[in-house]
Nucleic acid binder design. Sequence first.
DNA 1: GCCCTCCATCTCATTTCGAGATGGAGGCGC
DNA 2: GCGCCTCCATCTCGAAATGAGATGGAGGGC
Lengths: 307, 307
Amino acid sequence: MDLRQLRYFIGVAERGGFGAAASALNIAQSALSRHIKELERELGGALFTRTARGVAVTESGKVLLERGRWLLGLVDDIKAEVRTENREPSGTVRLGAPSSVAEIFYPPLARLIAARFPRVQLELGEALTELACDRLLRGQLDLAIVTGPQPNDHLCYETLVEEQVFLIGPPDDPKLKRGRMTVNDLKHLSRAVLPLSRTPFPPEVPSFVRVESSTPMKRIVASGLGYALLPYSGIYQEVDAGQLSAALLPWMSAERVLALPRGRPISRATQETRTLLKEICGDLIRDGIIRTSQRKRVIRQQRTSAH
Amino acid sequence: MDLRQLRYFIGVAERGGFGAAASALNIAQSALSRHIKELERELGGALFTRTARGVAVTESGKVLLERGRWLLGLVDDIKAEVRTENREPSGTVRLGAPSSVAEIFYPPLARLIAARFPRVQLELGEALTELACDRLLRGQLDLAIVTGPQPNDHLCYETLVEEQVFLIGPPDDPKLKRGRMTVNDLKHLSRAVLPLSRTPFPPEVPSFVRVESSTPMKRIVASGLGYALLPYSGIYQEVDAGQLSAALLPWMSAERVLALPRGRPISRATQETRTLLKEICGDLIRDGIIRTSQRKRVIRQQRTSAH
DNA sequence: GCCCTCCATCTCATTTCGAGATGGAGGCGC
DNA sequence: GCGCCTCCATCTCGAAATGAGATGGAGGGC
């Protein structure tokens, strides 16, 4: 049994004749006749009783008519449902980012997802690069924003932006007065406050504490206990408020990279989230919250899903 | 969207790959690929995400998978239902017969219908020939047993049986002693009890009452108030019980005819009822309840519904 | 880096489908 | 009663859909 045959059958039943149904269905009467015949053969009995004045639906035909109408309605419903599902991505997107990035990316992301893709569920976690990559590989994350790429065959990367890096110190620190620093200036700092995962300072600078998140790092620096390196987006509020002073390190940059697993299907929702993140990144650059060290702002990538 | 495409889609989704599904579905992988592509085009989005290790179902694909399985189940249910309906006639059959015929035909008919076609609803009415034909024409009856055919373009007839006709009188009536009568004998009867619809007696015989049903007719005759004509099937019980005497009128016969409307579809249930009536008629002849005036017992007719 | 798997695409054969013509059955009007 | 008209069934041919095999590109595994 075929949906087409069902439609034809219903057409004939509703119009009470092959000829009338044929013109209504835009099909030749002969073709209609053959389809009904085939349907009757398959169902093992007559669906119509043929008379010289048209056809009448048999008892079994009545059953098929009622059920068939319902079935065709269902088919339309299902199609509409799938189409809606296609138009509107849905499902859960699990995103990881370091807290400093999360702070500025997550609020606008949540707002945009809610507005544009209300059926997408976001799980916004905070994780530094290593942990994020690990979770990506384990399938615990769909997408991550990481800092600095460490090559991995099972991940693919897309650079979001390269941010300018600033040295931060307590307010009105004389070393940072000039607003920018050289490599040499850096070597003569008293103490460094390092992030957990890397050591961007020259080896000459002693460090006494490592912190995971940028907020305690900034607090420590603000109280004059040491210096730290952060991109502008991580410090602009404190600098504006006079709680920190900052100097650009022109030779350094922090590369914000979008990472996603390879070899695992990427959901529409994840795709859209990726697009939104790039959009948000552009907005942040435009608003001066992210200061790029590169001219280009959003890096394009080859298409990933097409057919 | 097509049921075949849906089956293919579900096959691919269940096996997690085109190749595996292709061999399971006995179709070439290329054809499968094309069908899925067409389905995706129609539904406006990808149903699978293709990877190098097979395919994964997208969010919209999951929806289609769930709904599609259900839909295919429904299709099977509907087919089974229609097939059952075809195997087992159903609906209502409205049958009309004169009370004397009803008396002997209806009980076995009801029994056989209940046993063989439990889904058929019988409406067994009592009506004499004229009324029955009128109701057939009005569509108030599907089938009728009538006595003596009056030609009508909108009815078609099928002779069930030609019954011997007996003259009945009170018990031990001397006129009926011989067991059979001649036309001349008939002319010298005192009084006749006539049926409502016709006058089978010669004009010489005076009549004083007309009755619709055979039961009062027999009662009147049994009390010696007159003579009447009835087929054997209508009197055998009273004759056996000695309440009536009867003499055969060899030159007469009562033709029991099955009448159905032309130009109106005949339901399977009606068809089966017709067949059963002929079967019952044969049984009654075999059991000696109906005595035929013809050698042939069940008259065949051309097929009425075929394709 | 090579091979192997898996899907997409191309091309051609087969099947299915649709259109028009023709014919038979039966109702309707003259 | 007779021809006409309507309606469905069937036949045949062209068109479209479907299926099969071959080939190629992408990507993972060794």
